[in-house]
Amino acid sequence: MTDLPVQLENVTKRYGAFTAVDDLSFSVKQGEIYGFLGPNGAGKTTTLRMLLDIVQPSEGRVSILGSNSAISVRRRIGYLPEERGLYRKMKAVDSIAYFARLRGLSGGKAKKRAHALLEEFGLGKFARSKCEALSKGMAQKVQLLATIAHEPELLILDEPFSGLDPINQQTLEQLIADQRAGGRTIIFSTHVMQHAERLCDRFLIIAKGHKRFEGTLAEARAGFGRHIHVRSSAPASALESLPGVLSVRLERSAGDEHDYDVELGENADPQDFLRQAMAAGLPMTRFEQAGATLHDIFVALAGDEEEAPPAQPARRAEAAE
């Protein structure tokens, strides 16, 4: 088992004249949850498909679980693709057992594991229901359980929260955290920052195929403007005129008072801002320091990107099996 189960070095993928991923390098550490973040069309799915050897990079090197091809280590990997799909006429328990057998479990062990997972995640009474009779949320749970049934070392989840209601999203967050607690390494792609902020040890932000940031949330915040939440009857323009203020955004108003999000420059001191406001006679009934959220950072780094053309259909999809 390698300390860096995933490594990409200077990876580029072109489709004709279109470059979907451009000179991308990153690594994932053993036992961490790694977020792969970007707007739609940023190159997330293309990168994951290159990692899984479903599509080939135009340039660069990929290493996964110590191998240069995911095909040779596929039984140690669990992959949930962005495009969901189950055999509609197959029963839920049989679907999970089928995928577990593809990844090396014996028939009896696969069926036992499938029943245990369905019971654990509240779907025991639907074990013998056909997949076509399941709700969208239940079907997505079944597919996720099929992804982890063979107890892989590495989980790769492409937009796993898509289409789930808030309760099922919370269940999935707990499942991901539990998998990490069991020693597994997890990569998941998303464009919803709240999930990444709660779960990720580290993350990468990608836009138009280019890496914009890789590291921890604390590292991202260190290079980002400080934010203060202020409640005042003063107009935004009065706050904007204070030294060190980069921007003032109105969040809400109630009567004569307004809640503002105030962004300060990197070297500005929030206490200096407060003193300057008091000296200028600007009334405040709330003053709260706050670090930038991952959403703030994401918008600053990738929020101006337009959606790119979709990647070409995957070939060699059998590599994910």
Rank of each mutant, 00 (worst) to 15 (best):
169 Q>K: 14
170 Q>N: 03
171 T>L: 12
171 T>A: 15
171 T>E: 10
171 T>P: 11
173 E>G: 14
173 E>K: 15
173 E>F: 08
175 L>N: 02
177 A>T: 13
178 D>A: 08
178 D>W: 03
179 Q>M: 10
181 A>T: 11
184 R>S: 10
185 T>L: 03
186 I>V: 11
187 I>T: 08
188 F>W: 12
189 S>E: 06
189 S>Y: 10
189 S>H: 07
190 T>Y: 02
192 V>K: 03
193 M>W: 05
194 Q>F: 06
194 Q>W: 02
195 H>L: 06
196 A>I: 14
196 A>D: 14
198 R>W: 09
198 R>A: 10
199 L>G: 05
200 C>E: 07
200 C>P: 09
200 C>M: 10
202 R>L: 12
203 F>A: 03
204 L>T: 08
205 I>D: 12
205 I>F: 09
205 I>G: 11
205 I>R: 08
207 A>N: 05
207 A>G: 07
207 A>R: 03
207 A>E: 02
208 K>D: 15
208 K>Y: 09
211 K>L: 01
211 K>C: 03
212 R>C: 14
212 R>V: 10
214 E>R: 04
215 G>N: 06
215 G>M: 05
216 T>F: 04
216 T>I: 07
217 L>N: 05
217 L>K: 04
217 L>W: 06
218 A>W: 12
218 A>G: 15
219 E>D: 07
219 E>I: 04
220 A>V: 06
221 R>D: 15
222 A>K: 12
223 G>V: 07
223 G>A: 14
224 F>H: 13
225 G>E: 15
227 H>D: 02
228 I>D: 05
229 H>L: 15
230 V>S: 01
231 R>S: 13
231 R>Y: 08
232 S>C: 00
233 S>P: 01
234 A>N: 00
234 A>G: 02
235 P>K: 01
237 S>Y: 01
238 A>P: 06
238 A>F: 00
239 L>D: 00
241 S>D: 05
241 S>C: 09
242 L>V: 14
242 L>E: 04
243 P>G: 04
246 L>R: 08
247 S>Y: 03
248 V>T: 03
250 L>F: 07
250 L>Y: 01
252 R>H: 03
253 S>N: 04
254 A>L: 15
255 G>E: 01
256 D>W: 01
258 H>T: 00
259 D>H: 04
259 D>K: 06
260 Y>S: 03
261 D>K: 12
261 D>Y: 03
261 D>V: 13
262 V>Y: 14
264 L>D: 08
265 G>Y: 05
268 A>D: 12
273 F>H: 02
274 L>Q: 10
275 R>M: 08
